[in-house]
Design a protein around this nucleic acid. Structure first.
Lengths: 233, 233
DNA sequence: TGTGATGAATAAGTCTGACTTTTTGAACCG
DNA sequence: CGGTTCAAAAAGTCAGACTTATTCATCACA
């Protein structure tokens, strides 16, 4: 799944990235490349490559004579999948899930509307398959099976929108949905109303009813937001 | 403005990045680090740092024994500000502007709705100032002055939403608005209706009317989309 | 003929050590 | 007290040697 430490510099990033995004080094903190290299027991060149990556994510800034300074959270590339993963693994995972869910609530309805206009027959069929899969796993504690189809469903919608910016949010949505199932403890079967909504969205997309697809998807995302409000008011 | 080639590796990225995003090297193309180092007249270590950055953007993948292969466009981190800048500078700038404008049309209305709920008095005041600035520069070919206030307006809305994911799109919106003014040739003064809408949004946010703020902003973004359809149907 | 093991070639990965450049802060002088 | 000079510090750059994983082709064997 997650990038399994490709190379030594990747190994370093696996612990340094989460540490920074977790706020372990407050903004303005200064790190020195040589010291880090020693700490992680790697050569300076490897450490420099790791720093370059962190720099490209705007997590740190490297300046001569001063060192590698941690940037304030507001400047981080929070859309970087790696950064998202690191943050979701950290302490304020709940806040992350919330802000990502809000993003979903903005993007997915519009994406569904576009999908109704541009989805191919293939994508419509796949969408229906996903919806049916959700129905099939909606009762009797088959949460994992339900999750798989739920993720696939939203991914297809985002892809079918024909907008690449939307399509690239598929992983984010997958992460949010998985987080809901795995961490926020879901004992019970999914809300039947939500399942129905997904079936109806698939139908609306198939029949090309953009307004309806958008509206129904908005209901789904509103539900997701309310769920968060209940869990963490 | 744009990251002015910090270090040698940055200098390399300034030409290699745009080249890749422009599709100059089709997906699957293989580059060799040594060869690139020679071509750019830098040491291997510098070139490796550049490759690491490209790799973190998912533009390329580096594998032993094979080289640095260019990834398909669908895997690029298209939310990376640097990637966005490179692509906007390239040949299919129009398509970029379109997909970013669609993103705006999804995000900004929701952001405005949230802003109406969470904006501070300070932010409300700033928003009104921006709207008035737009009015003041809306006639008599003061496009630059208008643009400045337009950008500031949308930035404040995104920040006031209280959602960091929205807030980080401020630069993207700025880029889109600037692109519209500078590249899509705007001879005439901005649409008076659009100016009015901005003033009304500021008012809705100030009075805490979320539904109205969202609706009005949706009208603004719909207008922006129609503008694109007229220019490139 | 097909299949699996062997091995050599290749390009990335890593390490080391020396050198350069920029920047900062302090000493110093007016 | 303000401006200039200077030296230290840390990143930046480079060159070269070595390591390691991967691929591809060859060859033996079933």
């Amino acid at each position: 799944m997650s990038t399994t430490g490709r190379g030594l510099h990747g190994r370093v990033l696996e612990t340094l990235g989460p540490a920074i995004t977790a706020g372990e080094y407050p903004p303005g903190s200064v790190l020195r490349t040589d010291e880090l290299a020693q700490r992680f027991d790697v050569s300076r060149s490897v450490m420099r490559e790791a720093v370059r990556v962190l720099e490209s994510m705007h997590l740190v800034e490297s300046r001569r004579r001063v060192g590698v300074t941690v940037r304030p959270e507001a400047e981080w590339n929070v859309y970087d999948p790696q950064v998202i993963r690191w943050r979701l693994a950290g302490a304020d995972r709940p806040r992350q899930l919330r802000s990502l869910t809000v993003l979903r609530s903005a993007v997915e309805p519009v994406a569904a509307g576009l999908a109704a206009k541009y989805a191919t027959a293939e994508q419509c069929a796949e969408l229906t398959r996903c919806a049916l899969g959700m129905v099939a796993h909606s009762r009797g504690h088959q949460l994992e099976g339900y999750l798989v189809h739920d993720i696939a469903f939203h991914r297809v919608v985002l892809n079918a929108s024909g907008n690449e910016m939307f399509a690239r949010l598929g992983d984010v949505v997958a992460e949010v949905l998985a987080g809901r199932t795995h961490h926020e403890i879901m004992f019970e079967d999914p809300d039947p109303a939500a399942v129905t909504l997904h079936v109806q969205v698939a139908e609306a997309v198939r029949t090309g009813d953009a307004a309806r697809a958008e509206h129904l998807t908005r209901e789904i995302t509103v539900g997701a937001l309310q769920e968060l409000d209940i869990l963490a008011p």
